[in-house]
Amino acid sequence: MPFAKINNHSLHYTDIAPTGDQEPKLTLILVHGLGSTQNYYFPIFPYLANYRCIVFDNYGAGRSVYDGGETSIPSIAQDVLGLLDHLGVPKAVVVGYSMGAIVPTYLASTSPDRVVAGVCIGPVNPNENAASVFEQRITIVKEGGIETMANTIPNAATGSKATATAKGFIREMIMGQSPEGYIANCRAIAAARQPEYEKVKCPILIIAGEQDKSAPLAGCKEIFAHLGTEEKNKRLEILPGVGHWYCVEVPDEVGPLVRDFCGQLL
């Protein structure tokens, strides 16, 4: 299992080469969300076989053990750049989900030379209401442990298309979190501020779920409307019957969207 020392903490990552002997025409780096791990993205990787895909456990999640350091959207973004530097990648398509989906627009607005394009899957649009929700989760986990989230999120945060198998996978990812790491990442969302969307100029794909309560469609539309990207280079795709766990609920819908968007960048 490869680990890299990035920004004073250890990150567990996986570096997936394209199929065959072909040189990668694009590199993707994928950032997961609260309560999940790098495994969240594996259901869509069969559709991304022509690209190099770098995926990692966020600091404080999965195998990237939390040891009391900073966790914030800017720090996660710096981990992305640090891991790209570690692997010798000058620029990449930045893919993010939920909390991690704040990162593509943040980096596109602050380090545009490192971002080929951004894919935002169920992006959280930081606001006071969202902050309140995650402050409440902190209290719940402190009082009842991580299992309180594992027993509720798989049903409460998925849509009508989610299967029992998908919900079991979600539960297992949540159960794999440490309470301390989960709470630190809740605080990162609660403290998050909206990126300067108007400074984003690169191509952007936003994938929204019709039944997503955690990153509601209205917030996705607001992000889309404020992007500085030219109209022809930005897309908003809305998936019927889908809640918040996109790549687990409907990988056969999400995977082709990401694949085709990346294909248009070549």
Rank of each mutant, 00 (worst) to 15 (best):
F3Q: 14
K5W: 13
I6Y: 13
N7H: 11
S10W: 12
Y13V: 04
T19N: 10
G20I: 06
D21T: 15
Q22C: 10
K25I: 15
L30F: 12
V31P: 02
V31R: 01
L34W: 12
Q38W: 05
N39T: 02
F42A: 00
I44Y: 05
F45M: 14
Y47G: 01
N50L: 11
Y51K: 09
R52G: 06
N58S: 09
N58G: 00
Y59R: 07
Y59E: 07
G62K: 06
R63M: 10
Y66K: 06
Y66T: 01
S72G: 06
S72M: 05
I73L: 05
P74Q: 04
V80G: 01
V80F: 02
L81P: 01
L83E: 04
D85E: 14
D85H: 08
G88D: 04
K91Y: 07
K91H: 13
V94A: 00
V95S: 00
Y97S: 07
G100D: 03
A101D: 07
V103W: 04
Y106H: 07
D113N: 09
A117P: 06
G118H: 04
I121G: 04
V124S: 12
V124M: 09
V124K: 02
N125C: 12
N125D: 11
P126M: 03
N129F: 08
A130M: 09
V133F: 13
E135L: 12
T139Y: 08
T139C: 05
K142F: 02
K142C: 05
E143A: 15
E143T: 14
E143R: 15
E143L: 14
G144Y: 15
E147G: 10
E147F: 11
M149W: 10
A150Y: 14
A150Q: 15
A150R: 13
T152V: 15
T152P: 01
N155C: 08
T158E: 13
G159A: 10
G159I: 13
S160M: 09
S160C: 09
K161F: 13
K161G: 02
A162G: 09
A162C: 13
A164G: 05
A166F: 03
G168T: 10
E172P: 00
M173W: 12
I174T: 12
M175S: 14
E180N: 09
G181H: 06
Y182R: 03
A184G: 06
R187Q: 14
A191I: 00
R193E: 12
R193I: 00
P195Q: 00
K199F: 07
V200L: 04
K201I: 01
K201H: 13
K201A: 11
P203H: 06
L205P: 05
I207E: 03
I207G: 03
A208S: 14
E210P: 04
E210A: 13
Q211D: 11
Q211Y: 09
D212P: 08
D212G: 10
S214D: 13
A215N: 01
A215V: 06
A215E: 08
P216F: 11
L217M: 11
G219P: 02
G219H: 03
C220T: 02
I223W: 01
F224K: 05
L227S: 03
N233I: 03
N233W: 08
W245R: 03
W245L: 15
Y246N: 05
Y246Q: 05
C247M: 11
D252T: 11
V254I: 14
G255F: 07
F261R: 08
F261V: 08
F261E: 09
Q264C: 11
